[in-house]
Structure formats: structure tokens, C-alpha cells
Simulated assay, not measured.
Amino acid sequence: MKKIVFTILIMCMHFGFSQENQAFFSKADAFFKTYVSNGRVNYKAIKENPASLDELISLAANSKVSTSNAKEYQAFYINAYNVAVIKGIVTKYPVKSPLDIKGFFDKNTYTLGGKKITLNDVENVLLRKNFPKEARFHFVLVCAGLGCPPIISEAYTPDLLEKQLQRQAVKALNNPSFIKVKGNKVQLSQIFEWYKEDFTHEGNEITYINKFRKEPLPVKAKVSYYPYNWSLNKVK
């Protein structure tokens, strides 16, 4: 038994995983499996029994990650963002939209990875700034609005992250409700308007989207953006 425990500890040290980080990924996975269904969150149930959410927030506060281990860093902050969003909603629940909560994205702070930061800091400073060519973040960071790609009922983990990012990008960009096609006209989520620079490193938005499409969009499609749906992504 001692030999097994020692081996696990050596593996964690080798991959740069601390005990807090391992616990965070494991507890986050259980939390999302319990409270997320079909891309929606059961905020009411979490509000009634917030112990697991509070434990996750505490673990996220004490975890430490570094960009030198990019997959662990990215997976941690993706989960931390989604957990913090849920915490922000649950604190004020019931609400109809995250925008009903003053300072939800840019003022209200959470301690994540030992840093006191806002949701915008996680997305724009810790993730987008450090990994400027990874636009797939936009398909896994879930802002609590129905306009976002759906939250998943599992945690993002370092070993599965590449598959998870790819899967969610393919799912979003082939969803006719997210990418609306009518002949030569294509309506895109405002995500593509707000973060245009993330999707145009190798051409325009159509070039980027077609890397993931089963049926490519017309190269010279007329692009417009439909209004974002900020209604809360709560379980019906």
C-alpha cells in the first residue's frame, strides 16, 4: 500500500500536480456531473445545498498552476472560471441573467490559483493573453448565458484537454443554432464580433470556422452577427 501511495506521489510530482490541484479536478468533475445536465445548470439545487460548491471554491483558491505546464494551467482556469460563474449566480439566485448582477464579469472577484481576480481577468489576462492563438477557449468558458456554447457535465483535465477543446469547438461550430446558415448568408454569434482578433490569425472568421465544419461555409459568405442571448442557462 505504501509503495502504491509513493508511486502516485512521484507521478504527481513528475506531472507538476499538487494535492490541491488533483483534488480540485476530481471534485470539479463530480460537481459538474451532479449539477449540469444538457448544457444547463441546476442553480436551485446548488443554492439549497452549497457545500460542494463552497469546497470547490476553496480548493480553487489554494491550487497553484504555472504556464510552464500549459495543459494543467489551461484546464484549471477553464474549470475555475466555470465554477466561479456558478458561484456568482448562486450567490444572487434567483436571477434571470448574469447581467442582472452588478459587476458580474468586471468587478466581482474570486480567489483562484492564489490570485484575487475577476472573471474577465481569467478569460482575458490569464488565458487569452498567455495563449493568444487558442481561440477554442471561447467554446468552453461558459458565462451563464444561453448564448454561450453549453457547459459540459465533466471537468476539463490536463490529460484530456486537447480532445475536450476540439470536441466542444466541433460541436459549437456545427450547431445550426450557433452558426446560422442561409444560402450565402451566415449569422455568427457575437462572440466572433467581440473577439474577432482571436479568430483571424490565419484569415477571416469563415476560414477559422471551416477548420471544424463538416459542411464548410461558403468562402465568400456574407457575415453578420445575431444578438447574444443572456438568459440564464438554468435547468428548466
Rank of each mutant, 00 (worst) to 15 (best):
Y226K: 11
K115R: 14
Q168E: 11
V125C: 01
Y35P: 02
G147P: 05
G103I: 03
Q168A: 01
N62K: 15
I151R: 05
V65A: 13
K3I: 12
A51W: 06
I89P: 03
K107L: 00
V125Q: 13
V223N: 06
S231W: 07
N69M: 06
K129T: 09
T207S: 14
E123V: 11
N49Q: 15
F32G: 03
K44P: 03
I191F: 02
L127W: 02
Q74V: 02
F17V: 01
L141E: 01
E202Q: 15
P94F: 15
I151M: 05
S189H: 07
I117K: 07
R40E: 15
F192Y: 14
T118M: 07
S177L: 08
P150I: 01
K71E: 14
K102S: 10
I151T: 07
N79I: 02
I89E: 06
L160H: 08
I191Y: 03
E193R: 13
L99D: 02
K211P: 01
L146V: 11
P227T: 10
K87M: 00
K133F: 14
K180V: 13
P176A: 10
A30V: 08
N184L: 10
F212H: 13
Y77L: 03
K87L: 00
Y73D: 14
A221I: 04
F15T: 13
F178V: 05
I89Q: 04
A135C: 08
E123S: 08
H138N: 12
E20Y: 11
K115H: 13
V223R: 04
F212I: 06
I46T: 02
K234Y: 10
G114I: 11
F31I: 06
P158K: 01
K44G: 06
N174L: 07
I152D: 01
A30W: 04
E215G: 04
K96G: 12
W194M: 03
I151F: 01
K133E: 09
I57N: 07
F76N: 00
L217H: 11
E72P: 01
V170E: 09
T67D: 08
S224F: 07
V83E: 01
D106V: 03
V90N: 00
V36Y: 06
K47Y: 04
N82Q: 12
E215K: 15
H201F: 13
Q74M: 15
K133R: 15
E162A: 11
I179Y: 14
N210V: 03
F24C: 04
A70M: 07
G203P: 05
F131I: 07
Q19W: 14
V235C: 05
F31K: 01
T157A: 05
N49T: 14
V223P: 02
V122D: 03
F131A: 09
M13Q: 12
Y228R: 02
P216Q: 14
N233D: 12
K27N: 15
E123D: 10
G203Q: 01
V5D: 09
F137V: 05
F24K: 00
L165H: 03
I57P: 00
Y43R: 02
Y195P: 00
P227I: 09
N62V: 08
F212K: 05
I179P: 04
L119K: 02
S18R: 09
L56A: 06
R136M: 07
H138V: 07
S224C: 09
K129N: 11
